[in-house]
């Protein structure tokens, strides 16, 4: 486990937390070029104790983002490649009978790590998927009647390739709800791509990257996020947005109360990353697409080509109280 070399005594002070955030952003921005929005969102997602779903075509840096997050935040990392023959035991682990001791011994699966990259999660069968999703929800796994706690903090970054349709099991809406955010990577812009092509191998850079925060620091950051101020005015705004998603003709299924809670939590985390005095409407708007994109079900025959477009339309239709 990689540990940062910062002064740990100071990790709970505001300055130390701020410095950690800024360093993390800088480190991540150095590896993943031109994706500041996605970096900030995924940082906010982890700080809000949420799981992240990255959905995009291969080769756009999904895995790189997950690995960088683990490395920069000093988290133990496991990658599970989801395939159609993946079994729940391959994720959780199995009890093996030891001849010399005459007892069953539990062999932990890859899920016992602080940050799990569930790669191409839609390739596995629903059975394997639900093994992962259940442990995400419960923060623990049960094997042979024994409940085992997962490490703290525990994050799942799942990736999904929307282009693949044959032989895949796309996550159903109810399961999508377990991910706090869903983001898309998108192509890098010209300059970033040029830098990427001309620069060093990203994997080598990743190896050289030092952790900027300890586990304690991360837990302290999560606590600070929970303490971010949410004013009545902001609640009004979030309620107005939620109400609109429920009443709009363009949306068949609007945000649930859990979705609204997710919106509040993510807005707080984003505000914290952005160093705002409280959660601002700007923070709500910044996380809205990532929060709502996979939770809203557009009405049939809608004029919006993508969930992002629909979410932007909602933001453009609701006045800020």
């Amino acid at each position: 486990m990689q540990r940062g070399n910062i002064v740990e005594k100071l990790h709970t002070s505001d300055e130390a937390q701020r410095a950690a955030i800024e360093r993390a952003r800088a480190a991540l921005g150095g590896i993943i070029l031109g994706k500041n929005e996605q970096i900030t969102l995924s940082l906010a997602c982890l700080l809000a104790r949420g799981h992240l779903l990255i959905e995009d075509l291969p080769g756009l840096g999904k895995t790189m983002l997950a690995q960088s997050l683990a490395r920069v935040l000093g988290l133990s990392f496991q990658r599970i490649q989801f395939t159609s023959d993946l079994l729940p035991a391959d994720i959780i682990g199995v009890s093996v009978f030891r001849q010399n001791s005459g007892e069953f011994e539990f062999q932990p699966g890859p899920i016992f790590a602080q940050l799990i990259l569930a790669d191409e999660v839609n390739r596995a069968t629903p059975k394997a998927q639900s093994a992962l999703l259940e442990s995400m929800e419960e923060q623990q796994v049960s094997v042979d009647g024994t409940t085992r706690a997962l490490p703290e903090p525990f994050f799942v970054v799942a990736t999904q390739n929307p282009g693949d349709q044959i032989g895949t099991f796309p996550l159903p809406e109810s399961q999508l709800d377990r991910f706090l955010m869903r983001i898309q990577m998108g192509y890098p812009n010209e300059d970033s791509e040029r830098e990427l092509l001309a620069g060093d191998d990203r994997r080598l850079m990743l190896k050289d990257t030092k952790a900027v925060a300890s586990t304690e620091m991360l837990l302290a950051l999560q606590q600070s996020v929970a303490a971010v101020h949410v004013s009545d005015a902001l609640i009004d705004y979030i309620q107005a947005l939620v109400r609109h998603t429920r009443e709009s003709a363009d949306i068949e299924i609007g945000l649930s109360p859990r979705g609204a809670q997710a919106l509040v939590a993510a807005s707080k985390a984003f505000a914290f990353v952005e160093d705002h005095s409280g959660a601002y409407p700007d923070d709500v708007q910044a996380v809205f697409t990532a929060i709502s994109g996979h939770r809203l079900k557009p009405a049939g025959g809608t004029r919006f080509r993508s969930p992002a477009e629909l979410c932007q339309h909602v933001l453009d239709s609701v006045a800020i109280p």
Binding site: Y280, P281, D282, Q285, L315, D316, S317, V318, A319, I320
Partner: peptide
Amino acid sequence: PGIGETAES
């Protein structure tokens, strides 16, 4: 101000 325009923008 536009509908849904934040103070910041």
